[in-house]
Computed example of a mutant assay.
Amino acid sequence: MNDTAIKICGLQSVEVLKSMINLPVEYIGFVFAKSRRQVTSDQAAKLTSVLKQWKNGRIPSSVGVVVNPTMEELKELLHTVELDVVQLHGQESPQFCREVKEGFPVSVFKAVSVHSDRSPIEQIAELKQYAGCIDGLLIDTYDPVHGGGSGRTFAWDVIPLYKDWTSRHGIPLFVAGGLDSSNVGELIRDYEPDGVDVSSGVEHAPGEKDITKVTAFVERVKRK
């Protein structure tokens, strides 16, 4: 079985989450930033309680997606919701990432946008400061409005540069941006990321997850 980790992001429905209980998914993401997939901390607390009922022998890690939060906002969020990972999806500094990592009992993932009009070498160089400050890196397609979550792919040929950086620093690389069951197999075959992140690619309407599409995506990633 493929050992690529799966992160299904933007869950809002308890019913949908319960229907996923038998699927081998490693991470479930909850969006707290302004978005059509946004949930409140109280909603997320109800959703994370469902994860404890998972049937496949491994409870998925809960991921909270936030954009440029203050430490006080994070403290309040983590007081209400039991999260395993905080995914910082804004312009958070290396120092801020380190403070979150050291100040709360969570892992820290940093999301960065891949810009089509900037040199990949230049973008990789900017990661240097984050060495030792994060526990995972997620790369997504740049979106001028929201930064990420555009539902569009980027030029995958830059992935090896990011994979080399994460490998050298001993952290996983997750790839997001326009993934669905039709293209994730090619991504895994050609670039072997440590994890894949999907949201709009498993929806039947904006913000509404489709269990059939979720299942197809998981099967494509985990197929032997």
Rank of each mutant, 00 (worst) to 15 (best):
P60N: 02
T48N: 08
K7Y: 05
A155G: 15
I121H: 13
R189E: 13
M20D: 00
T40N: 02
T80F: 03
M20T: 08
T166S: 08
T40R: 07
E99G: 05
N2L: 08
A45Y: 07
G64V: 03
F174Q: 10
D197Y: 01
P94F: 07
Q53D: 15
V218G: 07
V66D: 00
V108P: 00
R36L: 15
E73W: 05
V100R: 00
A131H: 12
K7E: 04
A44V: 05
P69C: 07
P105M: 08
W156N: 00
R189W: 10
S35D: 10
S182V: 13
I124C: 05
I121G: 11
L138V: 07
V112F: 07
A216V: 04
M71E: 15
P160M: 09
H79S: 15
I134N: 05
I159G: 03
Y162L: 03
R118D: 10
S49D: 12
L47D: 00
F104K: 12
Y191T: 00
D194A: 01
P144H: 13
W165D: 06
D3S: 06
Q129D: 14
V25A: 07
Q38G: 01
I121Q: 14
F32P: 01
P206E: 01
T212K: 14
V86D: 00
P144E: 08
A125S: 13
G207D: 11
D190E: 15
R37P: 01
V196D: 01
A45T: 02
R118T: 13
N183A: 04
V202M: 09
R58C: 14
A45G: 03
D190W: 11
E15W: 04
L74Q: 02
Y27D: 13
Q123V: 12
S150P: 04
T48H: 06
L161Q: 11
S93A: 10
D140E: 11
G149P: 04
Q95W: 09
D117T: 13
G177D: 04
I188K: 02
D84M: 02
K34F: 14
L78Q: 01
D140F: 01
E73T: 12
K55R: 13
P69H: 07
S49P: 09
P160L: 08
N2F: 05
V31N: 10
E102C: 13
S200G: 06
Y142P: 04
V100D: 01
E122Y: 14
G177A: 07
P94I: 11
G170I: 07
L187N: 05
V81E: 01
D135I: 04
I188C: 09
E26N: 10
E203R: 05
L137V: 13
V175Q: 02
A33P: 02
I21D: 12
H146Q: 12
Q95H: 14
E92L: 11
G103F: 03
S119V: 04
K55C: 11
V85R: 03
I8H: 02
